[in-house]
C-alpha cells in the first residue's frame, strides 16, 4: 500500500516535472519562425553548392546569408544581424560577383562546375553531417534557450561589451584589416617595372 502510494507520488512528481519543462516541440512562434527560416537557409545553401550556373550560386548565397541574419534576429542578437547584412550581403557577395566577372565566368550553365571527386565529397560531407547531427542532438536534447527578458544583443549591449571588455582584440583586428588591405593591393598590382620589359 505504501509502495503504491510512493509510486503514485513518484509518478506525480515526474508528471509535474514534465509539465514544468517544455515539451520537445513547444509551439512558440519563435521556434516555428526559426524552423521555417532555417529550412529556407539550408535549401539555399544546398542550391549554392550544387548549381551549375556560377552567378546563380552567388545570388543563392545572398539568400543563405540573409536567412542567417534573420536567425540572428530571432536569437535576439540584433547588432550581429545588421553587421551580417552590411558586411556579408553588402560587401562579400559583391566582391565574389566581381571576382566571378573578372575571371570571365561563363554566364550560362557550365558543365564542369563540379570536379571529379564529387562522390567522395558527398560521402565525406554526408558522414560528417550524420556524425555531427547525432552528437549535437544527443548532447543538447534537453536544453532550452531562454529568450525572455532583456534582449542580449542590442546595439547598446554590444557597444558596452565590445568597448569595455574587448577593446584590445578590436584594435588588433583593425591592424589585421590594414594588413589584409595592403596585402590585397600588393597582390593585385601589376608589376610594371619588371613585366614591362618582358611583355
Amino acid at each position: 500500500m505504501t509502495g503504491t502510494a510512493a509510486l503514485a507520488a513518484q509518478a506525480h512528481g515526474t508528471h509535474t516535472l514534465a509539465a514544468q519543462t517544455q515539451g520537445f516541440l513547444s509551439t512558440s512562434g519563435v521556434e516555428i519562425a526559426f524552423l521555417l527560416v532555417g529550412l529556407v537557409t539550408l535549401g539555399a545553401a544546398l542550391v549554392t553548392v550544387t548549381t551549375r550556373q556560377l552567378v546563380h550560386a552567388a545570388l543563392w548565397l545572398v539568400v543563405t546569408l540573409g536567412g542567417l541574419a534573420v536567425e540572428y534576429l530571432l536569437l535576439t542578437a540584433e547588432f550581429i544581424a545588421w553587421v551580417q547584412v552590411l558586411i556579408y550581403v553588402g560587401s562579400v557577395v559583391v566582391l565574389l560577383l566581381f571576382g566571378l566577372m573578372l575571371t570571365k565566368a561563363p554566364i550560362g550553365r557550365s558543365p564542369d562546375a563540379d570536379s571529379g571527386n564529387r562522390y567522395p565529397a558527398l560521402g565525406v560531407a554526408g558522414a560528417a553531417a550524420v556524425a555531427l547531427v547525432w552528437v549535437v542532438a544527443d548532447a543538447f536534447r534537453t536544453t532550452w534557450i531562454e529568450l525572455d527578458g532583456a534582449p542580449q544583443g542590442t546595439t547598446k549591449v554590444s557597444g558596452e561589451f565590445l568597448f569595455r571588455n574587448w577593446v584590445l582584440p578590436f584594435e588588433a583586428l583593425s591592424v589585421l584589416l590594414l594588413a589584409a588591405l595592403v596585402g590585397a593591393v600588393v597582390l593585385s598590382r601589376r608589376k610594371n617595372a619588371q613585366a614591362g620589359e618582358k611583355r
Binding site: 539550408l42 565529397a121 560531407a125 549535437v136
Partner: peptide, 27 residues
C-alpha cells in the same frame, strides 16, 4: 527555444560548405 535547432542547423550548414569545398572546381 530549443538549443537543438540552431545547433543542428549550424552542423548541416557546415557540412554543406564542406561538400562545396571538396566538390567544386572553380576557386
Amino acid at each position: 527555444m530549443h538549443l537543438v535547432y540552431p545547433a543542428v542547423l549550424a552542423a548541416l550548414l557546415f557540412c554543406t560548405g564542406l561538400y562545396g569545398v571538396l566538390a567544386r572546381r572553380n576557386a
